[in-house]
């Protein structure tokens, strides 16, 4: 049994007065796996989404399927796919301006300021901390008290915008049932768009800010029975917010991939009705 020497100026778990254990962490499990998997998952999505957002091709299939990465399609470039612009075209057609430049930055900020994603990237990218009871590498820490992280408090505004964009995505999924020449049709693509938008609603409505707005800010639930009921429903969804956060990253990629494959002619959309 040898006593480890304590460094002069040591900090954290090695601070003077605390047990001199001699190891930064004694965890024996694979604590590094969740942050590593999170980093890989987020990077895959960011690379895929960036490539697709700037590709400006294969975003509209069978004259009715619009991928969520191009919704709403408001660039003059959307004219290359007639019928894809449901809300007019007014942004310049430029390689550095995504066709859905009106929605993508806000969706990114909605997820960037999301309470779940904050946990995910603070752990996996900032290592603050990488895992519980694993020391972080930073000498000082101020949390979300200073610029820029104090801007995380604006999450609710991005939630409001995300609701508007989810309504637009829902509109896209509904109008996709109408083919310009064949009328009402149902294809596998319709089911893909519907599933995607349903899960997007689950993610958006399970948001912690939504929970607060619905009723969380109240002190007297009994005086507001309707808001209490809404809060109860959102609270039930909220317990799965992290799950929906990951599922929707996957469904966004799969939905976009399906539309891109059909639009490029790689696969044919199977029609179930019509």
């Amino acid at each position: 049994m040898t006593a480890p020497a304590r460094d002069v100026g040591s900090r954290g778990v090695d601070s003077p007065g605390r047990a001199a254990v001699g190891a930064r962490t004694l965890r024996t499990d694979r604590w590094w796996l969740p942050p590593a998997a999170t980093t890989i998952g987020i990077l895959i999505f960011l690379v895929y989404a960036t490539v697709r957002a700037f590709q400006q091709q294969y975003f509209f299939a069978d004259e009715r399927y619009l991928t969520p990465f191009y919704s709403p399609c408001v660039s003059y470039g959307c004219a290359s796919e007639p019928g894809s612009a449901h809300f007019g075209m007014f942004l310049p057609d430029h390689p550095l301006i995504p066709y859905a430049a009106l929605s993508l930055p806000f969706l990114l900020l909605f997820r960037l300021t999301c309470y779940y994603y904050r946990k995910a990237y603070y752990r996996s990218f900032a290592l603050a901390p990488a895992a519980c009871a694993v020391p972080e590498p930073h000498a000082t820490y101020h949390g979300e008290t200073r610029f820029p992280l104090i801007l995380q408090n604006s999450h609710r505004y991005f939630f409001y915008l995300a609701v508007v964009i989810s309504v637009i995505n829902t509109y896209d999924a509904i109008v996709a049932f109408r083919h310009p020449t064949d009328g009402f049709v149902v294809g596998v693509g319709n089911l893909v768009l519907l599933a995607n938008v349903t899960l997007l609603w689950c993610y958006t409505l399970s948001c912690h800010s939504c929970r607060h707005v619905m009723g969380g800010r109240l002190t007297h639930f009994s005086k507001h029975p309707v808001r209490y009921r809404l809060w109860t429903w959102v609270s039930a969804l909220n317990t799965r917010h992290a799950t929906f956060a990951w599922i929707t990253l996957g469904t966004l990629i799969l939905t976009d991939l399906y539309v891109a494959l059909v639009a490029s002619g790689t696969i044919t959309d199977l029609r179930l009705i019509g």
């Binding site: 752990r123 519980c132 949390g143």
Partner: peptide
């Protein structure tokens, strides 16, 4: 404001209190 909601408090709570959420 110093809390960055990384949920370790919730993870270790023996009473299962959802402290963070």
């Amino acid at each position: 404001g110093r809390c960055n909601i990384t949920k370790c408090c919730t993870d270790v709570c023996p009473e299962g209190i959802k402290i963070t959420d």
